[in-house]
Amino acid sequence: MQRALLDELTAALEAGRPVVWASRPSTGEEAVLRPLDLREGEVESTRGPDAWPLDEARRALLEDRSFAVEGPAGEVFLRAYNPPVRVVVVGAVHAAQPLVRMVRTIGYRPVVVDPRTAFATAERFPATRVVTSWPAEALEMLVPDHRTAVVTLTHDPKLDDPALMAALATPAFYVGALGSSRTHRRRVERLGNEGLSQEALARIHAPVGLDIGARTPEEIAVAILAQIVERLRRSSS
């Protein structure tokens, strides 16, 4: 690998941009590809005269897998570098604290959203990105993508409902809401009245998390995180 290419890769990773390192093991040719930046049907080769398999590179990023493909010019290895999965936690409540810690432990990136500045403090969430805007505005800024999970924990429809409506309008791979089945039935009724389709509402995981009998905030965090991993890994490959 060329040092300049390595620097390009690390810069992209630090900026949170998805890139692919394409290389031909037989010749040592290599390139950094940004297939998700291209519009539909647009083809661009960032280096060298030969075309790189951009559709396959796009698939590598979307499936978060690296693999070799056979092309007319021989084998090409596609190494997908995705930025860390983001977990947007709406509600800087007690249960959010262990969840944020565990999100970080598994290499994902937590973001806490809560306009109540008494809850959303740097002391309660050290070394964490905390957005103290209303959820709809916060999610508009955060632009959840296919590598983003959104979890609402406030129990307060004034905060949870707008967050869920905003999240369901995005390609977020996971949307979850804390609350009992009864709470969720009422929530579905409210959001349905707001015009959300049954299909959209079916995307909400509620009661949130895998059913492992979790009781403490820490156990609930494990249940939520396990469900997020499951959605990420089972739905894409």
Binding site: L13, A122, A127, T128, R129, V130, S133
Partner: peptide, 21 residues
């Protein structure tokens, strides 16, 4: 938009390995 950004280095394992190289 109010953001309290006290975030540590975001790096994943992969980023750390490449940076080390």
């Amino acid at each position: 938009m109010n953001t309290l950004d006290h975030e540590a280095e975001p790096g994943t394992d992969t980023a750390a390995i490449l940076r080390q190289a």
